[in-house]
Design a protein around this nucleic acid. Structure first.
Lengths: 201, 201
DNA sequence: GTCTATAAATCGATAGAC
DNA sequence: GTCTATCGATTTATAGAC
């Protein structure tokens, strides 16, 4: 049992390294431009070895998405219960923007059908996605009850709008411009998202 | 001259058909998943003939982007001068959301470097991009002077935020949900963008 | 300029030895 | 499980006849 467990741990460490590499490459180049050869080279193993761990390129991407959803769930759970719902939502959104700005947010093309199939077939992915959505959804409705978030906006729209910050191109544009540091960019985008472009009087 | 002009017109019609097909395919599948074979089949000509009109796949994409920028410039010019700047900005943003929702907004991966090179090397693209940016930028600063748009937000951030509505995934998600018609979706996303998620009191 | 046919390169995936 | 070597399919791009 001890040797089996050790072996499993070695395996897990290697698979973690693979998923981390996939995560980085997905964030850098996206799914279509990421090649399995690159992933193998990045991890330092042969491509055939990689396919002993993951059945396909789509499975690699799904594993990276599960990883980032797990991190998201952890950030959600780390929010103090006494905090107002709006603040929790902003904190999670801020975290997502920071991850994206750090070049560590994997991005998937929603058009790719083979990828969609793989994701929808992954129980770990679906379960985590529902868990995250449910928790954020509860906060959204609480914030709307509080009057902090506009009750006229369907909670579904609020959820999608927050989710979309993870692949918002605006932070990248502002970073490329070089006029603002990361914290300022996050503050600007977060404020634009929650306050809107129009003046508040 | 007349025959030459006629020939040129025939050529132009064919090239317009090519660019329209590219535009549709870019909107549907994105640059990486769009193949030149598909474009040729869609237009109804051989692939080799296509390459007589455009030098590369990147050149095809650039032509589609020039097309949509031209349309954008037309929409901008069609705004009545007496309209308040904020209303003009909202009208243009609304138009972009409608085009995207209709599946006619070409989308390019900002990560692809060969594509970036092609776009930056296209004078027509750069000129139109600057023209559109300058006109929108002037309206943004006017709206900030009016107090309609928050003067605390750098105009650059406002511009990027409006530009980003052209590739916002939220309209597509809402459409896939099937609970709202196109006009409602546009209204919701537009309101979220300009008013923000938080309540206005 | 349009076609058929094919070159040239890339990439996902696998065979088979160790 | 890891490796080397390679298959098979796809895709961009071009050659050459008409």
């Amino acid at each position: 049992m001890a040797r089996g467990s050790f072996r499993e741990q070695v395996l897990k460490v290697r698979e973690d390294a693979i998923v981390a590499a996939v995560n980085r490459l997905l964030a850098e180049k996206g799914f279509d431009l990421m090649t399995v050869d690159e992933v193998a080279a990045d991890v330092g193993i042969a491509k055939a070895s990689l396919y002993k761990h993951f059945a396909s390129k789509e499975a690699l991407a799904a594993a990276a998405m599960v990883r980032v959803l797990r991190l998201t769930a952890e950030v959600i759970e780390a929010q103090p219960p006494s905090t107002p719902a709006l603040d929790k939502l902003q904190a999670v959104t801020r975290w997502a923007l920071q991850v994206q700005l750090a070049g560590e947010m994997p991005t998937l093309p929603s058009q790719n059908s083979s990828l969609r199939t793989e994701l929808l077939g992954s129980k770990a992915y679906i379960d985590l996605l529902m868990q995250v959505s449910d928790q954020l959804g509860a906060w959204i409705e609480q914030a709307q009850t509080d009057g902090a978030i506009d009750p006229a906006i369907p909670s579904e729209v609020v959820l999608y709008t927050i989710f979309a910050r993870a692949c918002d191109p605006v932070p990248g544009f502002l970073k490329a411009g070089g006029r603002y540091d990361d914290k300022t960019i996050v503050d600007l985008v977060l404020a634009t998202c929650f306050n809107g472009l129009q003046s508040r009087r």
